Structure formats: structure tokens, C-alpha cells
Computed example of a mutant assay.
Amino acid sequence: MPTFLGALRRLALTPKLTDVTFRVRGFPGARSSAAATLEAIPQAVICGFEWGIEARDLWETERRLALVEPEQRGFAYEGAAMAATVRDAMRAGVGTRARDLLLGPGHPHIFLTYIGIGFALARLPRVLWKKAVPDLTGSPFHPTMSWLAVDGYGFDKAYFHTKRWVDEQYVPPAYPWEGVPEYFPRAVDQGIGRALWFIHGADPAGVAAAVGRFAEHRRADLWSGVGLAATFAGGCPEPGLATLRAAAGEYWSELALGVVFAIKARTYAEFVPAHSALAARTLADLSVEAAVEIADSTAVHTNGSTAEPAYELWRARIRAAVTLAATTQPSADRVHP
């Protein structure tokens, strides 16, 4: 049972479920046939946050999250990670809730829990950011994939402050995340790209047009975010995915990069919905197994530089691998020539 203070935190900090609906946010995707499906995702995040912000201990949070259906469980863990990060920050950054969650029951959802930390960053002053990501020694994805927290920050800003971050294409100041300040805006753009999938209700034409309105040097990272969201979150039938692939044009390898990361995250959580497998085939000509093989065989966790983190080196190797696979795969086996 939650404590009295937990109940107060929940009442003070938890958004209403209606706050994330596309209609309330004024998104063009509000009329999309995929709106209800996609809205359920941020609503699952809110539920996870609500449970995490009020729960007495991690066991109680874990038990509630276990009741969420597999399709949505990772998103609920995003919210729980956001709550754990906020609670640690309320203790001047000395709490261990986020670490215990990410190394414990949240580890199968490590990609999404990092994103949840990013949601917390969007609500915390930068002075507290240094302690936001806990030391996850023992996880094979730390600190390389901590850049997903920056991605989550970008998604949150685009989703809740769309006019400034999408319409006006605001560029945030650099921040020395993992000692690579110049890469920070790029990781933010990857999150903005994911948000565009939601803002436009999984409409390929709307998403492509939105990406095209950004400065050219930002489009590659935006397209990788689109590919991740289209594959992980779904909401688009096969013909629409084919349209999205065609619209990516010269940025197809970026779109496919997002596909690979999404499939890796889904398989790591041991649940791959049919729509994710469909997106892998249609967007990248990859089976689930082939996408995981590319992610695992190209993994980079060291040798990053002050100009390019290990995370981006891994992304670059994935782009090269999917491009090579596309050029060597027999044309008859491809979803699209």
C-alpha cells in the first residue's frame, strides 16, 4: 500500500490520462485511425509513473507492472523509471531507486527505462542531471545506451512543447553527456523523430513532411527516430510502412537503423509483437533474427571519442550492415526492390 507521502506525490506530480491524448495536445494525428492505439502508450507511461511515485517499495511497483500486458509493459516501466529518477532527485541525488529498478526488474526493459530517465530530465534542472543516470555496472548496455535518456528528453519536449520543439525547430544548447557535448543535440533529434510518429498519428505522409521541414543536417537523426517508433510502437499497416520507406529516400539506412534498435529492444524484453516483425520486414527487409544479429554483431561499447560516442559508432556500424545486407540480398527476397 502507498504511504501518505506517496499519495501526496501521486496527486501532485502525476498527469491526467487525458493530458496525453492527441486531441488535448492538438496533434494533427488526433483524427488518425491509429490514435487510440498510440495514445495507450503514453497512458501506460503515466500508469507506471503513478505506481512508481507512490509505492512504498520496489516490490510493490514490480508487482503492479507485472499485471500490465506484455505489449505495454515496457512503456509502463518507462514511467516507473521516470518516477524513480524523480524520487532520487528529491533526495538530492543520493537515492538508489533508479539503480535498483534498472538493474532489477526493469533490466529486460533497459532500453525503455533509459528513456524514462529522459522523461525525468525534462522536468529536472540541469544541475541535477549528472546524478540522474545511476551507475549500472554489470549491465552490458551501460553507459553506451544511456544516450537513450537524451532521446527520451527530446521525445518529451517535442510531445509536450510541440510548438517550440517541432514547429519552431528549437535546438537545445549542448550538454556534456558522457563527455560528448556536441552530440547532445543529435540524440535529442532522435527523440524528436520518435515523437513525430505520435504527433502525426502514424501517418507516413504527415511524418515525412514534418521531417522535411527541419534543417537538412537534422533529418538523418529524425529518420532514425521515426524508424524506431514505427517498429516498436506500431500503428501503421503494411501499405503505409511501404510508403514510409519510400519517403525516407536517401535516409533509408537511418530508418533501418531505428528498426534494428527497436527489434533489439523488443527481443531483449522477450516480446516481439506482430506489428514489429512486420515493420522489420517492410522497412528494412529484415527478419527479427537478422535484425538482432546485426545489432549484436556490430555492438560497440568502448573507443568513443569527444566528438563521437561509442553509441554513435554502434549506430554507424548498424547503418553500414543494413546497407550491405540490402545490396547483397537477392532482389526476389526483398520486400521492396
Rank of each mutant, 00 (worst) to 15 (best):
P337N: 04
M82H: 07
T243M: 09
A40F: 05
Y77I: 03
I46M: 00
T162W: 13
R23I: 05
D88H: 04
K130V: 08
Y183E: 15
R186A: 07
A205C: 02
R97H: 10
R317H: 12
R315C: 11
H161Y: 12
E293A: 15
A132G: 06
L101T: 11
L286G: 05
A274S: 13
W129Q: 00
V45A: 01
A262F: 12
A98N: 02
I53L: 00
K264M: 09
P273F: 11
A120K: 06
L286D: 12
K130S: 14
E168R: 15
G212N: 12
A195V: 08
R245N: 05
G249N: 11
A247L: 15
H217S: 14
M1V: 07
A262V: 05
G104P: 12
L67A: 15
T144V: 14
F49P: 02
A7K: 11
H200F: 12
F198W: 10
V207T: 15
F184Q: 04
S146Y: 01
C47W: 13
D167N: 13
G118C: 12
N303L: 14
T137M: 03
S32I: 07
R266D: 08
Y153D: 05
T328G: 01
L128D: 10
D189A: 02
D221K: 10
W147S: 00
D189R: 08
M82N: 01
S305Q: 08
T144K: 07
P28I: 10
V207Y: 04
T37D: 06
Q72E: 10
E178I: 13
G304E: 11
L324M: 10
R164I: 13
R213W: 00
I199L: 04
G52M: 03
G225T: 12
I199V: 08
A210Y: 03
D156W: 08
V86E: 00
G118W: 10
H275D: 09
A35Y: 03
E312K: 13
E69N: 13
A321P: 04
H161C: 07
L283M: 09
A310Q: 03
L196Y: 01
T231F: 11
Q329R: 14
F155D: 06
A34H: 05
L278M: 12
A262Q: 06
T3N: 04
A12K: 12
P185S: 01
E182A: 15
V180R: 07
V211E: 11
A208V: 10
F4I: 14
A80H: 06
P70I: 06
L255S: 13
W223C: 10
T267C: 06
